[in-house]
Design a protein around this nucleic acid. Structure first.
Lengths: 311, 311
DNA sequence: GTGAAAGCGCTAACAT
DNA sequence: ATGTTAGCGCTTTCAC
């Protein structure tokens, strides 16, 4: 085909206002060039980084990205999966899957549609390749630092992910090694105001009361509010470590020490793995897309003994 | 058709593993049940609220949402618009369109595909119905408050949106009424470190130096950093007001006074308007989806005269 | 009521 | 090198 002719046709096409119909094209080719991503909820600022990376990687490889939020509802999560399947997405990202997805991922697996779990897996998503971020070293570093400051008991606020989540696991392991007590409160961040405060008060009354708090991104707002209401100074009265700070916050300069990672990088990696998978190279069972980093800031100080048993 | 038969067929379908193919269905019906949304960039945490609302509204009306980021690049923005057009999305959200979109929205308009601009319009997007949030009262309230604290000169940091953006306009108008000077710096937040600091220093050296700062969400991180580096206390040395705080931050309790709105509500409204438009009820030229609120916090205090002309 | 056929816009495999 | 055709999986129409 002569380049001249190509140009003539192209200009004629423009003149006639012709635009190829991707939808029809894709029907013929038995693909949609669309990838689906299901989120439990958006809220956490770090997800913006993830989306930026994921979205960029998808468009780089020619795919569109259809996103979906379950608004914290497991039923909705499963319904969205089915919708994406009916849509015949070419690939699926299951972002932070809930505890139990039932069989809603099975159709994808059966149809040979590549699906990737991001961050962790649960029941019903345990057979998906996983893209994760390594916690071990950063958590160990944080715990070691806390131990050096005399902390012997920490409390971790996370959301209700039933099968012991990996962070919890690693925290406990580090706790065992460093001879520190690790307690976990799995609680939804949108519980009524005051719930977090009550929990903290309750823990502080115990014999081995925590002198440091770990808080997931979603738990940070209510925990921070609780500390303000209780008049607890950070780090004077209690030390605080947060998880999953976003890029925007990094530039903003929050006061909290944090264990965080590059969300954009994880998004890009997931996108790339998906593209490779679609090209015939299935991803390994587990991929480490990034490493969590321990960033110490002013929210960590010496352990402060509380007045237990105030009666 | 008897309900009994319906059930028999339904179970037979399940037994055979049949799932309807939406893509083929949509080709036949000349629609895709997909809405496209183009973002200049994600970064700002408020966009998570918007996405939550937009995504919810779309799925409520049976539509999928394909999102796209231009990563701050106008070329990419236009390319994404074209891609979405080839995809034959049924509707388009142009979120915070850049200064000049050229003719890239024209195909949608010509094809009768409803397109909505969110937040503002620019060249090339000026003919789209607009979903906006009213600034006037909140900005006036903030300025009135600052005036009462003795402020006579404020500086506004925003990103480079060339045609005088509406916030700038309203700030200036309020400034005129209240006899306050309003200066604006349109600067990309990802300029080299130190740029914001230099700009602030420069403004502080002037005769009528600003005693208060307004900062868009994207500008807040570098501005906050600059203030830290300059050793300027808030509100002791200078007062600060931010824009577009997210829900997450509201719960977190940031120290800055802010002019913000309910991002989820705006998303829901945009989604609803789009669904109605697709159902034959085109939206009005301008829709107010929410009102900006003025929330005063500790970052606003009495005006503090700077030592100008330090030589 | 049930069944057959046309066609949405494209691509791949043919035949000329 | 160019033209023709079948068919992706559905819905709609039209005939039975």
């Amino acid at each position: 085909v002569s380049p001249h002719l190509v140009e003539r046709i192209r200009s004629a096409a423009v003149g006639l206002g012709y635009t190829p119909n991707e939808a029809a094209r894709n029907l013929r080719l038995l693909r949609t060039m669309t990838l689906g991503a299901v989120f439990d909820r958006f809220e956490e600022p770090m997800f913006m980084d993830l989306l930026e990376g994921l979205s960029s990687a998808c468009q780089k490889h020619g795919y569109s990205l259809a996103i979906t939020t379950a608004r914290g509802d497991q039923q909705v999560y499963e319904a969205q999966l089915q919708r994406l399947f009916e849509r015949r997405v070419d690939g699926l990202f299951v972002v932070g899957p809930p505890d139990d997805l039932g069989d809603s991922v099975a159709p994808f697996l059966d149809a040979g549609i590549p699906a990737l779990a991001l961050f962790w897996r649960g029941r019903g998503s345990d057979r998906l390749p996983l893209v994760r971020v390594h916690h071990e070293e950063a958590i160990r570093a944080a715990m070691t630092r806390l131990a050096a400051e005399g902390h012997r008991s920490v409390l971790y606020f996370t959301r209700p992910i039933r099968p012991r989540n990996i962070r919890d696991l690693v925290l406990r392991q580090a706790g065992t090694e460093l001879n520190m007590k690790v307690a976990t409160e799995s609680i939804s961040f949108d519980r009524p105001d005051g719930t977090h405060r009550q929990l903290i008060e309750e823990h502080l009354r115990r014999a081995d009361a925590p002198t440091a708090l770990f808080a997931d991104a979603n738990s940070l707002p209510p925990v921070a509010q609780a500390l303000r209401e209780l008049g607890l100074q950070v780090p004077g009265d209690i030390s605080v470590v947060t998880f999953d700070e976003s890029q925007w916050h990094k530039r903003l300069g929050l006061p909290w020490s944090t264990i965080c990672f590059d969300g954009q990088e994880v998004g890009r990696t997931a996108g790339r793995l998906m593209a490779e998978s679609l090209a015939g190279n299935p991803p390994p069972d587990i991929t480490s897309a990034a490493e969590y980093q321990w960033i110490e800031r002013g929210s960590v100080g010496p352990a402060h003994e509380h007045n237990n048993r105030q009666q």
